[in-house]
């Protein structure tokens, strides 16, 4: 299940929903990304997340499909927020359930790495000294390339 929304989410509630009525799940890994008050500049007061409606949902869906092809998963939830957020606010949630922990850990890691390099979201940070668009990071691409093999599609 994939959602792009302005409203905040509750990671606990989302995890419970994923697990409700299931007894075949042996492991659930949940990752929540938060807005930091420092990034490219030290005094960030807010950030605005823009996305490309339509393409965003498709891109997230493809990432989840790829994760499901690589690991035996029993449930995935991805929620990404858009709009104006302030430090401490949750931005993104990935919850992955599997029979075993290794698959759940790795799939969650994989989904976040691909989300950061392939899903059409853009962050604009608002700091005391002005607003600026966040630059892409080499390290994010390095992280994502850990999962790539020769027969993968690279955007």
């Amino acid at each position: 299940m994939i959602r792009v929304q302005e409203a905040p989410f509750d990671a606990g509630v989302e995890q419970q929903r994923l697990l409700a009525g299931r007894s075949d799940i042996g492991a659930v890994v949940s990752f929540t990304g938060l807005v930091r008050d420092f990034n490219e500049r030290p005094d960030i007061t807010a950030l605005t997340l823009e996305h490309y409606p339509g393409m965003t949902e498709v891109a997230l869906g493809e990432i989840v499909t790829q994760a499901e092809a690589r690991w035996p998963l029993q449930g995935v939830r991805v929620i990404h927020r858009v709009g104006r957020l302030t430090p401490g606010d949750p931005i993104v949630l990935v919850v992955v359930a599997s029979a075993h922990r290794r698959a759940a850990f790795e799939a969650c890691d994989f989904i976040m790495d691909y989300l950061k390099t392939r899903a059409p979201f853009w962050k604009k940070e608002h700091s005391i000294t002005g607003d600026y668009w966040v630059a892409e990071r080499e390290s994010d691409y390095r992280d994502a390339s850990r999962w790539e093999s020769e027969n993968d599609e690279i955007p």
Binding site: L115, K116, E136
Partner: peptide
């Protein structure tokens, strides 16, 4: 057709 900078979500 959409043109955009590298993505920075997550």
């Amino acid at each position: 057709v959409a043109f955009f900078p590298p993505v920075t979500g997550g």
